[in-house]
Write a protein that binds this DNA or RNA. Structure first.
Length: 425
RNA sequence: GGACAGGUGGCCGAGUGGUCGAAGGCGCACGCUUGGAAAGCGUGUGAGCGCGCAAGCGUUCCGAGGGUUCGAAUCCCUCUCUGUCCGCCA
């Protein structure tokens, strides 16, 4: 949610953001409604003031006749107030809908365009050229007995899966490996609930309802399965006022992530690449407004350290305006090389880092007070993937496979897996 | 799941229809005092919204929502959360 005051002050920037993102929302309608809400609020304040004055007058001794007259006036004032309140709440609902449709501002460096227009910032490592017939991760899983997609489909449905044998060790090892790096970087770790209330989900800018929603809802409870620990970590500080000295806040969460993948039919979705459930270690940071760009870089640097340790070739891209979610001001993705993807391998998204500035924080009411200042300000919030397990396991298997069918475990991960190689079998 | 007891400011806690945005205490900030500190004394100390350049003024908020009343923290209804006991359980 944008600052309502910014609607008229930064009208052109907002219109530009809508255009570049391809979002169909009208700043001017929102501005007009905002004016109407303010006027109505002023009217309500006036009506309440008259009513308060009238009540004060009612405290004195009155004759029976005057008391009756006083009661009559009170009833009339009460009706006036309730009429204005009714109008105001209708106006406010319209305004909030219009305001909620407006996306965040866009960082000056964000490239224009859609999914294919991300700007490559840099790469690390080189895609490996195999001197044998490389397999994709599905073939590796089946040869080494690491996953069971058929059983997943039978028990839960398409895009659900079982991990088996060393893949289970990899799953747990990736959590420990990533947490170790995050602890070193000063993060406070959490294991979060895998569910959250719909208003928390909405507070982070995810739509919990509708046909295209990515979010699963639980049928007999007012709860959603979280799509990321960003939701539960963001909710952690909802409605609070932080001290400036507490910032920046670096927290990390391990959770399962559930996604409906509605509307994803036909997209690259082989095996572990696009699944309904996976485990993820997430970073989440809360900063002063002037510190969020630097924190964005810090988060990206941690992600790169993690993937360098896993010896995966990757590239970093600056996501284009049309591909940003509404809350994101800027987003970096890390795409790992996946040899089994497409024809002869391709880059596949494996991690991302978003600076959402104050967009989520405003709705979640997360504020801070500067040293010596009286007014509270809205914080900036950022999130980034430390390790998203399903896709990372995919990348590890495909990149580190060996001629004899075995898979090498990168050195940095070995202490957590407890072995140096998987297979051959 | 059943029974009972409660949700008041950063915290504790008083308040059962008008004098209550709310006593008192703790905490915190500033000042006085002191060689320095403690103690003591004094002053201040919630959030949101509207109008205003600002100072400020107004307004809303005592778990949430509704109701009674000229007037509700206080009375009534619904919901919710917490605590305790019982049951069940990894």
């Amino acid at each position: 949610m944008l600052d309502p005051r910014s609607i008229s002050e930064r009208r052109d920037e907002i219109a530009e953001s809508c255009r570049r993102r391809g979002v169909n929302a009208d700043v001017d309608v929102a501005a007009k409604l905002h004016g109407e809400v303010s006027a109505k609020q002023t009217e309500l304040n006036e009506a309440n003031r008259r009513r308060n004055e009238h009540q004060q007058a009612g405290k004195q001794q009155l004759s029976d006749e005057d008391r009756e007259a006083h009661k009559g006036e009170g009833r009339a004032l009460k009706e006036a107030v309730s009429r204005i309140e009714h109008d105001l709440s209708a106006l406010r609902a319209d305004f909030e809908r219009a305001l909620g449709d407006l996306p965040n501002f866009i960082h000056a460096s964000v490239p224009d365009g859609g999914e294919d227009d991300a700007r490559e910032l840099h790469t690390s490592g080189t895609p490996r050229s195999f001197d044998f017939e490389a397999k994709d991760h599905l073939e590796i899983c089946s040869a080494l007995d690491l996953a069971d997609f058929e059983a997943g489909a039978r028990v839960a449905g398409q895009k659900w899966y079982y991990l088996k044998n060393e893949a289970v060790l990899l799953e747990l090892a990736l959590q420990r490996y990533s947490l170790e790096i995050l602890l070193e970087a000063g993060f406070t770790p959490y294991v979060t609930p895998d569910v959250a209330k719909p208003e928390v989900v909405a507070g982070l800018g995810y739509n919990p309802r509708g046909d295209e929603t990515q979010i699963y809802s639980i049928a007999n409870a007012e709860l959603c399965l979280v799509g990321t620990a960003e939701i539960t970590l963001g909710g952690l500080y909802a409605d609070s006022i932080l001290q400036e000295s507490e910032l920046p806040l670096r927290i990390a969460g391990v959770s399962h992530c559930f996604r409906t993948e509605a509307g994803a039919a036909g997209r690259e979705s082989k095996g572990l690449y696009r699944v309904h459930q996976f485990t993820k270690t997430e970073m989440f940071c809360i900063t002063r407004p002037e510190d969020s760009d630097a924190m964005h870089d810090e988060i990206l640097a941690i992600e790169e350290k993690i993937f360098q340790g896993l010896e995966l070739p990757y590239r970093v891209v600056d996501i284009a305006s049309g591909d940003l979610g509404a809350p994101a001001y800027r987003k970096f993705d890390i795409e790992a090389w996946m040899p089994g993807r497409g024809d002869g391998g391709s880059w596949g998204e494996i991690s991302s880092a978003s600076n959402c500035t104050d967009y989520q924080a405003r709705r979640l009411k997360i504020r801070f007070r500067r040293e010596g200042e009286k007014k509270n300000e809205t914080v900036h919030m950022l999130n980034g993937t430390a390790v998203s397990n399903a896709r990372t396991i995919l990348a590890l298997l495909e990149n580190h496979q060996q001629r004899d069918g075995s898979v090498r475990i990168p050195e940095a991960l070995q202490p957590y897996v407890g072995r140096e190689v998987i297979g051959p079998r």
